[in-house]
């Protein structure tokens, strides 16, 4: 694999999305929004009730993350991705109705979500799990914009600089987890043989 990095700036356009492929290493710049399980539930509630969403997510990237509290002198604490598949039922709806162009998490997504990525032109990026002190360095500012009562699960607008992610699912139906493992994997039957 050729190891190149691409700098991307939010908000993302369809033109940005079309150039990305599973395995591309990306440095994100601009604003991204955090949202986890409960925030997703609340956001899709607006859609279910046919009400406008409280934020414009057109071209936005959602980061599945709940940070640690900021210690004095820091804009935020440690921050990293949570398991993405838990958001799938909500995320598909958000993709359809809001124009979200990117999601950052960790782990495999459902086939339905991958199909939605193709249909609505959205990228699923992975950030490395368990390197939350390192990722802290790439956050320049943080502001709670929705659901203060959720604590770590509140929706935050983060300004990021060269935030490192990798494209897992592109809009062409490719999946980095599948591609990456093919080279190395043996079946359980072969291992036990």
């Amino acid at each position: 694999m050729v190891w190149t990095t691409i700098r991307l700036y939010t908000p993302l356009s369809d033109a940005d999305i079309e150039t990305l492929h599973a395995g591309d290493r990306i440095l994100l710049n601009g604003n991204i929004y955090t949202a986890r399980d409960e925030a997703h539930k609340r956001l899709t509630g607006y859609i279910d009730n046919k009400k406008p969403l409280p934020l414009d997510f057109n071209g936005a990237i959602i980061f599945y993350a709940g940070p640690t509290p900021a210690s004095p002198g820091k804009v935020i604490g440690s921050i990293g991705p949570t398991t993405a598949v838990r958001m799938d039922p909500y995320a598909i709806k958000l993709l359809e109705y809001t124009g979200i162009k990117g999601m950052i998490g960790k782990g495999e997504r459902s086939q339905e979500l991958r199909d939605a990525c193709k249909l609505y032109k959205c990228i699923y990026f992975a950030a490395t799990g368990g390197v939350a002190a390192l990722l802290n360095r790439h956050i320049k500012s943080s502001e709670i914009v929705l659901y203060d009562d959720l604590g770590t699960e509140a929706v935050r607008r983060l300004e990021v600089a060269d935030f490192p992610v990798i494209v897992v699912n592109d809009i062409y139906g490719r999946d980095l987890y599948e591609i990456g493992r093919k080279k190395f994997s043996k079946s359980v039957e072969d291992i036990l043989a």
Binding site: T128, Y177, K183, F184, S185, K186
Partner: peptide, 12 residues
């Protein structure tokens, strides 16, 4: 030898 690798992106 399952090939999952670090963060599931393939590896030994």
């Amino acid at each position: 030898t399952l090939g999952i690798g670090p963060q599931g992106m393939g590896g030994s």
